[in-house]
Write a protein that binds this DNA or RNA. Structure first.
Lengths: 356, 356
DNA sequence: AGCAATATTTGAATCGATCCAACGAAAGTG
DNA sequence: CACTTTCGTTGGATCGATTCAAATATTGCT
């Protein structure tokens, strides 16, 4: 039908000419109709209609106005991450809420492969960035910073004090999880870890862990081991398996962990996602949670409340973090550096004293 | 730190002057570095660095280049709809996939309140729109069309042949659901409907249904009743309750439907979301599904496969619809008008013959 | 009718880049 | 050495709008 598939070179200036007015007046017809005489206004509108003019092109307006009225959310994962991952979804819900309240839009920017990455960030039309640093964060942060736009990194315990961050106290949160399990009497542990270094999954030695690129992962491990040491557990013998936080690598991790002579009685998982996979995997193996194995997750995603059994976990105020991030960007007063929100241990049915 | 909170008026022209070259050359340094002499290139880059230039502003580039390289997804719901609603999420996953493949970004545009709505659509920086027409679609479609950008309406069985649409055969899908239940022997039904008219929930009479604004809702009802009539059910006595497709109004619907002397043995739900709420509500009432009541949903969202009991439903190729929509927008050849995809009845455990 | 006050309209300047025809300088050729 | 290529650089035109001071038209008042 009407759509010819190609050029639509009808500009404001065209209809101004057609209506016999200056482009200044034509512009006013759309942006401040009340100051234009009715007769003229109608004439211009008629011309616009006749020529198939779709209203002032935001591309043009933008340049003059300066503000895009949208905030960018960037991640190194594929775009579908925003809709699949439970953590991301709760976070996005918080971000959405804050954006709705202020009328801002959301631009999703992905950078799954490295070349696109740079370009996508560099050319994103946004007033600021929220960077998801769950994985592969460092490069993203650098690119975002180069845009010299307001930006906030989420969930990144970066060394770099110059990066505005909204996060949690990973050490304290992890310690709470470990403490809960040691209090229950557990002494044999395994850690389902997030990546310490980009793309590296598998068993990780304690020194490798100390040299982590991802400070968040390292800090959680520190928190875990801090508590385990207190009760005399030899942490050098606790298996640490880094996964890509997906089903496949988490299952590999579990195979390895439970393939040993003395399997753990308790699992410390650095994400609820891994913990939930573990729940399923153990159930398929006829291992009872919490009686054979206790599990404590991390994040506090909604799914953790309705799993079988419901998951004990360290809950982050995820949605709140999203809301704060938007706020930090919109009223970019430069004050919001490095905010740390409290976490909370939620005890549910996936943890209990070890057998016997 | 470095972020002063206000103006950053450093433009390409500024660094050009600082480096003692023309703006043309300065531009080349960033867009085609290979054609400018190394010495000059370094000089310009140094100047940029020194003055805190964040690279060519996409706002400026955009005007010249024309393409935003992002597609807009618009809905009349709040932005969080994209992350909360199961149907929307699967659809967005399909859209994400197609966008990732082509390197395009996604702009989420919401229009929860009417004034913002118009403006948000009119000022969205996108190359085309995908309009979610689940609810409140008509106005959205009109606004999107006025932008004269490529656009596709999803899930809208519009009368208007000039609107490009990707959808399903609602009548046929609904008929399959009803046929399944009548085949099982059911004769007493209730319909959990989506809205027929904007924002109107509650019991709906058959004539009101015929005057629906939302053709999709009406068509599904037509499909249901077509089959029910075939086996002699008096459709005028089948309660039709329109909900807002949320928990609260679905519960009200169920209260009403099961508050009668002769409650139905089978429920036809126009969305899985409602069907899942019904599952829970009935279980809380100690009514067994499928023995006391059978339920057939609509959509085929992932949650329907893992509910208790798993839900019999009419599955749409949701993700595929999303993928096709993106494709239709990107290679806007004007050919993609009104595409209808097949639906499929997935029989699970929520439907069985009525008692006795 | 004459003049001030008010209502409209005009057109140049601006937003921040990219593109491209033209041009000067250095290198290659006979 | 004059003459063509090649390479790099320049600066004006352009993308599509908004803004605003100045110009012009209308209206009100005596």
């Amino acid at each position: 039908m009407a759509s010819p598939g190609n050029p639509r070179p009808v500009r404001l200036a065209d209809i101004a000419k057609a209506a016999g007015v200056s482009h200044g007046t034509a512009s006013n017809v759309f942006s401040r109709p009340e100051i234009v005489r009715e007769e003229v206004r109608e004439r211009v509108k008629a011309a616009a209609e006749a020529m198939g003019y779709g209203g002032p092109d935001p591309k043009g307006r933008l340049l003059r106005a300066g503000k895009v009225n949208a905030i960018g959310v960037a991640t190194a994962e594929p775009l579908s991450y925003f809709f699949d991952d439970p953590f991301a979804r709760v976070m996005m819900a918080g971000i959405s809420q804050a954006c709705d309240a202020t009328g801002a839009g959301i631009s999703l920017v992905s950078a799954a492969n490295n070349e696109q990455l740079a370009w996508n960030i560099q050319s994103a039309l946004v007033d600021g960035f929220i960077v998801f640093c769950i994985e592969g964060g460092s490069r993203l942060v650098q690119l975002a910073r180069e845009r010299k736009l307001p930006f906030v990194a989420l969930d990144l315990a970066s060394e770099d004090g110059s990066v505005a961050t909204i996060g949690i106290d990973n050490v304290a949160g992890a310690a709470m999880a470990a403490r809960h399990l040691t209090d229950l009497g557990h002494r044999r542990f395994a850690v389902l870890a997030l990546e310490f270094v980009d793309g590296r999954t598998g068993l990780v030695s304690p020194d490798q862990a100390q040299n982590a690129v991802y400070a968040g992962t390292r800090d959680r491990l520190t928190g875990y081991f801090q508590e385990l040491s207190r009760v005399g557990v030899d942490t050098t013998r606790v298996p640490i398996y880094a996964t890509a936080n997906d089903v496949a690598s988490t299952k590999s991790a579990l195979e390895t962990i439970f393939g040993t002579a003395e399997p753990p009685t308790a699992i410390l998982a650095m994400s609820d996602r891994m913990a939930l996979v573990a729940l399923e995997w153990l159930s398929a193996r006829k291992l009872n949670v919490p009686n054979d194995v206790s599990i404590v997750g991390f994040d506090g995603v909604p799914e953790a409340a309705v799993s079988e059994p419901p998951l004990t976990t360290v809950a982050q105020p995820i949605a709140e973090m999203g809301r704060l991030a938007v706020k930090a960007i919109l009223d970019n007063d430069g004050t919001t550096n490095r905010r740390q929100l409290p976490v909370e241990l939620i005890v549910r049915a996936s943890s209990a004293p070890p057998r016997g």
